[in-house]
Write a protein that binds this DNA or RNA. Sequence first.
DNA 1: CTTCAGCGTCTTTGATCATATCCTGAGCAA
DNA 2: TTGCTCAGGATATGATCAAAGACGCTGAAG
Lengths: 224, 224
Amino acid sequence: MKEITDPTADGKVPTHVVTYRRLRDMILFGQLAPGQSVTIQGLTSLLNAGMTPVREAIRRLTAEGALEFLGNRRVVVPQLTQSQLDELAHARLSIEPKLAKIAAQYIDDDDIIILKERDLEIDQAIATGDIHRYLLNNYQFHFTLYERAGAPILLSLARMLWLRSGPSLRVVCGRFGTANLPDRHSDTLAALRARDGDQAAAAIAADIEQGIEQVRQSLVVDSI
Amino acid sequence: MKEITDPTADGKVPTHVVTYRRLRDMILFGQLAPGQSVTIQGLTSLLNAGMTPVREAIRRLTAEGALEFLGNRRVVVPQLTQSQLDELAHARLSIEPKLAKIAAQYIDDDDIIILKERDLEIDQAIATGDIHRYLLNNYQFHFTLYERAGAPILLSLARMLWLRSGPSLRVVCGRFGTANLPDRHSDTLAALRARDGDQAAAAIAADIEQGIEQVRQSLVVDSI
DNA sequence: CTTCAGCGTCTTTGATCATATCCTGAGCAA
DNA sequence: TTGCTCAGGATATGATCAAAGACGCTGAAG
């Protein structure tokens, strides 16, 4: 008989994995700002976890580039520079359109329905100015698509790249609002319905370029 | 006054970093075979480290794809499948030629001398059949070049991709020997001397394609 | 009598925590 | 300005708990 009365029960997921996911989501969906410092003991009390799981989560995120090790024993959320943004753009444009192209081969009608729902959520989030909801559904849109490609290595690379751009995206949205976040996903959906891999790749590439451009604008503003 | 009598002194490098590097090098240069399982307690006694540093090193390496988490709590060195090899090829061909191209802009004559020395080491290693020496110098050749690009994000991606292909490379060398490992680095060096980024990128791309092809052959043999 | 399947224990290993030690940087005084 | 001291936080260890695979035992069937 399984204990179901305790809602804090892990089920079967170990604490260090739960801790990793929560910290990752905090980075991905804008709880943590670029430049903000992260302390182990702060996380232990915030996430109600022991020291060891928090340490392991931080190590993992550091390896993925979502956090940065400051030589002395400080850990911060990294701030992107112009040139790093260029690197990100190149890497994302190399990986994600490829994933979209492969995924277009394997995707079925149910998947497209799910993606369509995500897209609607995104539209509503933009309309209501709900940044967190926008970021969450945008992430889900891209990665439910990418997961269909069945390409674990490229997928993990894409995840890493999103982790690096997450905090900056949040800053952009916070600064300019959700109003001028146009929705390039309808192109993607059209391509997927036609099972046109190349066109899906092109739509995703356009989406990425636009997102990067937004962040770039924001960086220019910062550097003044 | 610094203590220099004790060669085991960390200097300033913390244990978990030392442990990470040693484990990483074991994976990269063929101490660990694909499919081999890795235990925490085995590492603690092998590396004379405590539990926490070993755990953190393993977490980091799993995040980088160098180790794989087996659901139940086993950790193993991953075995590449055909399709994962295709993913690796795409990713490496997207990242590393770009790094070479950028690096060609910034490289100076001293760097080229260093690379030339690495190349000589590689030739000797091939001649004497010294697999470990070959792998080590081949890695150094590529990454002393890549480091010159000053592109930390692309560099870390390249490091990850090498970590994934390391164990398989070792198997290939162990099976076919070093004899038919041709040396494509002279093309690279020529391009660098001419400061020709595009040609350097092409040379690196050819090098990668050849390496991947070797592994692919090996996988075909395995699948029979 | 032998063999094999099922089952329970047992050892090995992983996960977590509490604690001790050490490092870093800031504040203070000379 | 320079050196010292101290507090806060990171690092590292070992103990403890839980789980998963390994091993051997029993019992029945051939």
